[in-house]
Every structure is written in C-alpha cells, then in structure tokens.
C-alpha cells in the first residue's frame, strides 16, 4: 500500500512537471495559430485558427527564407563541430595532462566567462572589421569555435572518468593522442552528446552576434532574418511566436537524436 502511494506521488510529480514545461509551449503554439485580432482572447474556437502566420514566414517571397535556413545550418554546423573537437581536446588536457601553465589556463578559461559580454561587443566588432570578416561566414564562425562553457564542461567530465582504461591504452603502446581519440572520446559519448546539443542550440538561437556581424540580407541567419521580418510591431505575438516555434523544431530534432547517445554512450563501450 505504501509502495503504491509512493508510486502515485512519484508519477504525479513527473507528469505535473511535464505539464508545467509543455503547457506554456503548447499555449504558444496555439497562439501562433491565432489571427491577429484574437491574440489576447484566451480561448479561440478551433475554426478561427489560421496557418497564415507560418505561411507568412515560409512562403514570403520578399524574404530569402531558404537562404537564411541554409546560413543558420552551415554556421551552426561549423561552430558545433569546432566546439566539440577543440573543447574536448582542451578539456582533456586540463583534466589529465600536466604541463606548465595548466592551472593558469584553466583559471583564464573560467575568468573570461565572468566578464559580461556586453562590454566587449564593440571591441570585438572593431577587431573583426579590421580582419574584413564582417558579413562573411568566417566572421560568423571562427571567433566562436571554442567556448569556456564547453571546455569547462568537458574538463569536469574527464575528471570523473576512471583512468584505468587510459592506462591500459598506454600499456598497449598507444600515444597520448591515440589514447584520447580511441579510448577517452568513445567513453565520453554522454558528455559529447550534451555538448553537441548545447552548442547547436546556442548557436542556432544566437541573435546578438549574427545580427551585429551581418549587414546584408543574404548573410542573415534565421533569428536575424525573422527579426527583420517582424520589425517594430512586436506586439503581434502570433507572428513572433510562430517564428519562435518554427525555429525551435530543428533544435528539438537535434536533441532527440543526441539524447539517445546518453544511453548508448555506456552501453556500447563495454565499460560495464
């Protein structure tokens, strides 16, 4: 009896929280289908809903929508790949290799995250402008190929991996490099998956930098393009939310794909 009660309580919490997280999302989706005069009406009969807000985004012939999508995809892919590789390498070195300056480097990685980004907006732009990287893919990707958050994340994970397997690798005659690629990384699938999700998500939704670094429509990413489409009438929440919902779907797909690796990560390594 007590067990049953615990179970009921457990599932109440599990489902209850899901309602809290999914509810506002569904509500926004619902609003994204509303016609403008209905935005502030709580309940709208289903036959008054419209696809127009989504059509407005996808089918608008004035805006090079496919191009923005493609830009976003390229930029997010490059930035995610760069971060996954470089952050893992650095995180591994910070966790496992002893070299002069290691502690200082880790402190610096941490410290640069503590400076509010708003204060380096302008200097960064000036630098990229010097490099002639404004409005190019290089400008949208190269400065963002590594990130303190990701380095720190990977370091913490490598700290918690048992070292026995690495040592076995050394005994088998693998170099440091070989151990990293062949033993450590395959062991870190959950962390790599988490990192991929975050980097993709962060970059996909990123607005401030792409907005600053692009000057012509054909270089916009999705968030920048959508924003230019709304203009000042941001009180038209139905349009804004339709855009937000539309942008969210690719990230959800990436999440669904990579969250599987959390589980597989352990199952396939033979660590068990």
């Amino acid at each position: 009896m007590k067990r049953l009660l615990v179970r009921v309580l457990f599932y109440t919490i599990v489902i209850g929280y899901a309602v809290i997280t999914v509810g506002p999302f569904l509500w926004s989706l619902f609003t994204a289908f509303k016609m403008t005069p209905d935005i502030n009406t709580l309940w709208v009969p289903l036959d008054r809903l419209t696809l127009a807000n989504f059509e407005n985004i996808v089918l608008s012939d004035e805006y090079p929508f496919a191009r923005w999508f493609w830009n976003s995809l390229i930029v997010a892919a490059i930035v995610t790949a760069g971060n996954v590789i470089f952050n893992s390498m650095a995180g591994y070195a910070l966790a496992r290799i002893n070299f002069p300056g290691r502690r200082v480097l880790f402190l610096i990685v941490l410290a640069v995250m503590m400076v509010p980004g708003q204060v380096i907006l302008v200097p960064m732009y000036m630098l990229l402008s010097e490099l002639d990287w404004i409005n190019t893919y290089a400008g949208l990707t190269v400065p963002f190929l590594t990130q303190g958050f990701g380095i720190f994340l990977m370091r913490q994970f490598f700290l918690s991996i048992p070292r026995d397997l690495e040592e076995a690798g050394f005994l088998d005659g693998l170099s440091r490099w070989g151990v990293f690629w062949r033993i450590v990384l395959p062991l870190s699938k959950p962390a790599l998956a988490a990192q991929t999700i975050f980097m993709f998500m962060g970059n996909w939704n990123s607005f401030m930098w792409p907005n600053l670094l692009t000057t012509s429509e054909e270089m916009y990413t999705l968030p920048v393009g959508l924003n230019s489409l709304y203009g000042e009438y941001d009180a038209f929440w139905n349009h804004v939310l339709a855009g937000a919902m539309f942008m969210t779907i690719p990230v959800i797909i990436v999440f669904i794909i990579f969250q599987r690796h959390f589980i597989k990560g352990l199952a396939t390594t033979g660590l068990k």
């Binding site: 390229i74 892919a77 490059i78 190019t136 893919y137 990707t141 270089m219």
Partner: peptide, 10 residues
C-alpha cells in the same frame, strides 16, 4: 564548410 565560407563571403 570552410570552402563554402571562402566562396560565400567577402
């Protein structure tokens, strides 16, 4: 992507 980047920008 970098090849593309080279063509696309600048």
């Amino acid at each position: 992507s970098f090849v593309l980047a080279g063509c696309g920008g600048g």
